[in-house]
Design a protein around this nucleic acid. Sequence first.
DNA 1: TTGGGAATGAAAACCATTACCATTTAGGAG
DNA 2: CTCCTAAATGGTAATGGTTTTCATTCCCAA
Lengths: 155, 155
Amino acid sequence: MPGRNGKGPAWWRGKFRGCGYRLTVPRETIIEVLSKAAKHLSAEEIYLAVHKVYPAIGLTTIYRTLELLVQIGLVFKFDFGDGRARYELAEGPKGIRQHYHLVCTNCGRVIDYTDFIDEAKEFLSQTMKALTEKYNFKIANHLIQFYGLCEKCQK
Amino acid sequence: MPGRNGKGPAWWRGKFRGCGYRLTVPRETIIEVLSKAAKHLSAEEIYLAVHKVYPAIGLTTIYRTLELLVQIGLVFKFDFGDGRARYELAEGPKGIRQHYHLVCTNCGRVIDYTDFIDEAKEFLSQTMKALTEKYNFKIANHLIQFYGLCEKCQK
DNA sequence: TTGGGAATGAAAACCATTACCATTTAGGAG
DNA sequence: CTCCTAAATGGTAATGGTTTTCATTCCCAA
Ligand SMILES: [Mn+2]
Ligand SMILES: [Mn+2]
Ligand SMILES: [Zn+2]
Ligand SMILES: [Zn+2]
């Protein structure tokens, strides 16, 4: 666990402190968990993971911290339709990993895909520019998701 | 109110009956309300609107019917981040009105836009084709939303 | 080291949605 | 038209993810 004692990577600390927020063990641990997560954790899953290394953690802090991280832009919050929010680090030590999601409406599986990002960027920049002008709407973020049946669920 | 007594437009009945579902007053009224809705109603808003003309309605029926309508594809269900689902008729008597949404993250306002649909279609058909091939994922639906600040909230 | 506002955590509250179940109803068979 | 039965309904209770409350703890600038 980098950080606490040494200085560790701390790639996110700059942004964090820059916003005037305090560095705390819970926050650090939550980000730690998110950065190691395979995928799309729910608040409770994050709670359980953090709890293993920091048993004093409270579920409330998980929610509060996630909200904060989403605010800052360090974390994305998704709704894949299973009744609970899912969270994912927006960027890692290696920078932003731009991707979108395929959601299976039958089994709930979520596939990340990074293909065709160029096409998306092209489409998005065009559209966003036009929308901004026409509606005077300041776009900060966007969401693209495809729903359907995964390989297994088609049979 | 078309339907019940006369035959009215009943543009949706075909699809409805075709699926083996019964025609009932609650269902009819709910669709009626949706078709007249200015925009993006929540379950409770639909309940209140239906209640005015059909006081015997139960909230449970609202939810069940909406689920059904979403299933059939007559209604779209959205999550604009305000903690409750929002519903919108997928097609009206005049056919499908393809559009996307701009969501203000400050005041919650949702703007429908129908512009640049051609660009979206172009991008989508390309992307969907490629994704289908690569991941063998059968895409049935998609979601595109832009988040940011509306005109009023930028100041 | 210290003061004070920020952050935390346990428990209770919130609230949109769902489950249950007794009652009603649509609509096809006769 | 009348019956019959599975489908549909609606009131109520339950669920469960998320928020609120508030007393306690902690970060960190001075
Ligand atoms: Mn992802
Ligand atoms: Mn709309
Ligand atoms: Zn699947
Ligand atoms: Zn706004």
